[in-house]
Amino acid sequence: MSAPKIRLDCVSKSFGGSVVAVEKLSLDIRDGEFLAIVGPSGCGKTTVLNMLAGLEPLTSGTMTLNGKPIEGPGAERGVMFQDYALFPWRTVRGNVEFGLVYGPAGQGLSPAERTERVERTIEMVGLKGSHEKYPHQLSGGMRQRVALARLMASEPEILLMDEPLAALDAQTRVILQDELLRIWGQDRPATERRTVVFITHAIDEAVFLADRVAVLSSHPGRLKQIIDIDLPRPRGDATRRSGDFARLCQSIWELIREEAYRATMN
């Protein structure tokens, strides 16, 4: 087994000295795997992602990418935010090309290559014909696609996604789960896939998408268990209906049920 892509070693994060969001989290993330992190609210999922993105410093512990410590944001780690964080003053095209035009991701690309990649990415997420629309003119599902396109256009090595589908209705969500797997490359051999860290509170979503699911407990956030999801790829509707799928969802639910109940009481 090769060295992990990302290694979290005894990572803790506290806010204001007293509130412990994440406690002694150790986790290896493998190259090319789709890792989902689930847990009840208050388990520090988003904090873990922000630390991976380099947006928040660790309180203690170490976090390495390809063996080097993560010290800040970097274009090799692309982030898709929970509420998309699209630039409202830029069109669909303007948002998708942003990282290529102004960030290091576009260095070495000719303007023609850049345009070609932006076009291809917009088409890939199904937004062809909406190039000149502004985010406020789009539905929630379309904004989500723009955010995905913006993430993919820069071709980062690692995709960090923070509950990207949480704000969508159930049907749109199922469709975008399928598309996410297609865009990620579930049809391609595992060595050609990008590494994904996907935060969600939806257990079925985590099981459907991921190779492994890391279950966190809350207050403070600790790693409870890592579950291998051995469902065959490519996955689709048949996966959702399978008994194995239901069994995996059930076993994860049992891990966090007690805490989830407690969270509803607060």
């Binding site: 800040g72 274009a75 630039f87 960030g103």
Partner: peptide
Amino acid sequence: RLIAAARTMGLSGPSIMRRVIVP
């Protein structure tokens, strides 16, 4: 979050000022 998004795309401080804060 817009600033955070630009940072994760590797923009420098002056670029963020020009491309995010000003607009």
